[in-house]
Simulated scan of single mutants.
Amino acid sequence: MVAVQAGFAGLNILPKVALDSGMSPYVMIAYRQIIATVALAPFAFFLEWKTRSVLITRKILLQILFCSTFGATINQLLYFIGLKYTTPTIASALSNILPAITFIIAVPFRIETVNMKSIPGQAKVAGTAFCVSGSMLMTFYKGALIHIPHSGLHWRYAEKVVEKSTEASALAGGSSNKEIFGAMLVVGSCVAWAIWFILQANMSMSFSAPYMTSTIMCAMASVECFLIGGIIERDIHSWALGFNIRLASVLYIGLICSGFAVLLMTWVIEKRGPLFVSMFSPLQLIIVAILGWAILDEKLYVGSVLGSVIIIIGLYLVIWGKAREFNMEVSDEGAAMESELNRGEGNEDIEEELPICSSIANANCAKKVFQIQEV
């Protein structure tokens, strides 16, 4: 997970330099989806297609289409357009409000519950409020400049690109408004990502083939992004890729962020669970802040630091609340199952429930049953 977060940190640095050099975010995302499709296709074929009978119905294809629209196209376009107008540190920090936004969206659909009488329920609500407050603070309050010494590690090309971009923004005026606009777009990308979580969770109940669905999703997003990019970026020269920062950035985000990171996260979720994965999210912010200061000479302001701290506190409150609710649910079910086992009536229920969990590929369900069985 440290390697995954380091890879995601580069997602905010390298593309930022490419965007400041004049590369269009629409072009960047279109190429990213193509590279991600090519990178994931072999894993989908050898790990899932050849080992099982995969039946993809029209309903599944429609669900994957909605997932690609929100989880890849809208999410990534909003994020990279926002990154163009804001700093890598702010973009990375605002990404940590994702659990809170997911919680807000999931409540009306009764995927999540709000029990204000319990401490975990209060923690989730308080964490959500912290995340939203921290994001608003980072978006609309800059504060005083934090004076830190310059680093001796400067990427000269990136430094020149950033200087030109800063000068152009200063001449055009309204740089503060652009940063606010960029931050709001990043928040919008989190909303699209949260919607994708809801859609993906619903689809995984009836069709469990993560590599296959990810490959098809990236392929569909490639078509969507090329259509959008073709309408907006009509100059053929803007689509040219040479041996430069543009090629490096699309290869990086396609292979590392959409290929390498997805595979590692899938493996870690299987071994340690989704909670373990989410606990490492703030590490990306720290790595981005260090790289931004060392390589891009990024300036830190009081508003950014305070907002980041508030968001991280909120993130861990939401995660703690979710984990505590899960443990309480497992404990209650375990007590009930233990009572049935003592009466000699529980063995058949466990044997019947395990295949159901396997058939719908519900990791949480399976985990609960195994924990109950241990009790």
Rank of each mutant, 00 (worst) to 15 (best):
Met1Leu: 12
Met1Trp: 09
Ala3Lys: 06
Gln5Arg: 13
Ala9Gln: 05
Leu11Trp: 07
Leu14Asp: 01
Lys16Arg: 15
Met23Ser: 10
Tyr26Asn: 04
Tyr26Ser: 12
Val27Arg: 00
Met28Thr: 05
Ile29Phe: 00
Ile29Asn: 07
Arg32Phe: 00
Arg32Met: 04
Ala36Asn: 03
Thr37Tyr: 03
Ala39Phe: 14
Ala39Gly: 04
Leu40Gly: 07
Ala41Lys: 01
Pro42Ala: 03
Phe46Gly: 08
Glu48Phe: 01
Trp49Ala: 10
Ser53Asp: 13
Val54Ser: 07
Ile56Asp: 00
Arg58Ile: 12
Lys59Tyr: 09
Leu61Glu: 00
Leu62Asn: 11
Leu62Gln: 06
Gln63Ala: 11
Cys67Trp: 05
Ile74Met: 03
Asn75Ile: 13
Leu78Ile: 10
Thr86Phe: 10
Ala93Asp: 00
Ile97Thr: 15
Phe103Val: 15
Arg110Phe: 14
Arg110His: 13
Val114Tyr: 00
Met116Phe: 07
Ile119Leu: 07
Pro120Asp: 00
Val125Phe: 13
Ala126Pro: 01
Gly127Arg: 11
Ala129Cys: 15
Cys131Asp: 05
Ser133Tyr: 12
Phe140Met: 03
Tyr141Asn: 12
His147Asp: 14
His150Asp: 15
His150Asn: 15
Gly152Thr: 15
Val161Phe: 03
Ser165Tyr: 12
Ser165Asp: 08
Glu167Ser: 13
Ala172Gly: 12
Lys178Ile: 15
Glu179Gln: 13
Val186Gln: 02
Gly188Val: 07
Ser189Ala: 11
Ser189Lys: 06
Ala192Cys: 03
Trp193Cys: 11
Trp193Gln: 06
Trp196His: 12
Phe207Asn: 02
Ala209Leu: 04
Met217Arg: 12
Met217Asp: 08
Met217His: 09
Met220Thr: 10
Ser222Arg: 06
Val223Lys: 03
Cys225Asn: 11
Gly229Asp: 07
Ile231Ala: 13
Ile232Cys: 02
Glu233Met: 11
Ile236Tyr: 14
Ser238Asp: 04
Ser238Cys: 14
Trp239Gln: 06
Gly242Ile: 06
Leu247Trp: 07
Tyr252Pro: 06
Tyr252Arg: 04
Cys257Leu: 03
Ala261His: 05
Val262Gly: 03
Trp267His: 06
Ile269Arg: 02
Arg272Gln: 14
Val277Pro: 05
Met279Ile: 05
Phe280Ala: 06
Gln284Tyr: 04
Leu285Ile: 08
Leu291Glu: 04
Ala294Cys: 06
Ala294Phe: 05
Ala294Met: 04
Leu296Pro: 01
Gly303Asp: 10
Val305Asn: 03
Val305Met: 06
Leu306Gln: 03
Leu306Tyr: 10
Gly307Arg: 07
Val309Arg: 02
Val309Cys: 01
Ile311Arg: 05
Ile311Pro: 02
Gly314Lys: 10
Trp320Leu: 02
Arg324Asp: 02
Phe326Glu: 01
Val330Pro: 01
Glu333Asp: 05
Glu333Ala: 15
Ala335Tyr: 00
Ser339Tyr: 10
Gly346Glu: 04
Gly346His: 12
Ile350Arg: 04
Glu353Trp: 11
Ser359Val: 04
Ala363Asn: 11
Asn364Thr: 13
Ala366Trp: 00
Ala366Met: 07
Lys367Cys: 09
Phe370Leu: 11
Gln373Asp: 03
Glu374Lys: 15
